[in-house]
Nucleic acid binder design. Sequence first.
DNA 1: TGAAATCCCGACAGATTCGGTCGTATACTG
DNA 2: CAGTATACGACCGAATCTGTCGGGATTTCA
Lengths: 152, 152
Amino acid sequence: MLKLTKKADYGLMALKYLAEHPETAALSAKDVADAYGIPAQLLAKILQLLTKHGLLRSHAGMNGGYALARDAREISAYEVIHAIDGPFFITSCTKGTKSCELTPSCTIKEPLARVNETIAGVLKSISIQDLAEHEQPAARARDSHGLVALTL
Amino acid sequence: MLKLTKKADYGLMALKYLAEHPETAALSAKDVADAYGIPAQLLAKILQLLTKHGLLRSHAGMNGGYALARDAREISAYEVIHAIDGPFFITSCTKGTKSCELTPSCTIKEPLARVNETIAGVLKSISIQDLAEHEQPAARARDSHGLVALTL
DNA sequence: TGAAATCCCGACAGATTCGGTCGTATACTG
DNA sequence: CAGTATACGACCGAATCTGTCGGGATTTCA
């Protein structure tokens, strides 16, 4: 399936929202949740995670809330996803650095590890800022799907 | 998480195994399952799926089994994953062509749809043959992670 | 023709993960 | 002190995933 969890989605949406409102010092979890109609308490936990990973700065109390810890250009989608869903590996057997113990003959994961890196690279190349500028940059001379090339 | 299901892993492993044994006319699900120590009945169902999607040809009876329906070079990892896990979308809200009804304000998915295409493109560029030749082609003048570029 | 091997397929149970809620504690503001 | 907000752990229901079971159909071979 290869799909993001809803939490990661929510996290990206929230950061995008924060990036779009740089004028306000901080936005509460509830503000953002209401803006998108997502469960406030769930979003709160997500934002707490992002704070713990240094992507956001939080402030309790009245007029408190969350703000980007860095420029939107300096926060990649990869960081967000990684902070929320943890490290991802395309092969289900890969856990940390060790190969799969269960099926020692799993020779598939070595080539897929490279795919993994490629995907991670793509995600790293996308910043929150990119998401915020959702005015699509129009198909400026690009082929079918962005630029894809993999030196396998 | 962004990870393949075990089924998809098994499917890729099985196809790779078939690609590595072109001399035999057909291999039974049990043969392949034993080779990798994976549940035979589960693998059988996976191979049936792949057959239904035209990636394998099956033959019942003694000395029956499965064989690649095409040259290993002509079967992409994308097809395998797609056949087993169904269409994948990186954003959890994307269902078919319709936008997410739940959160109509989900503006995140448009940029991510492009990431999705990129990933699909990478997966399409990898053939079963590539997996079978797991002698790594050595880092032949490649930067950090294959070639990554995305015209967002 | 009958037995063995093999594919085919639907149903189902167990485990895991995910989404979401609740309750409580803590921190800041005024 | 009262109100607003984050912080965090426990928990539950739902969905998904993994794996198993059982019965059937097809082919080969003796």
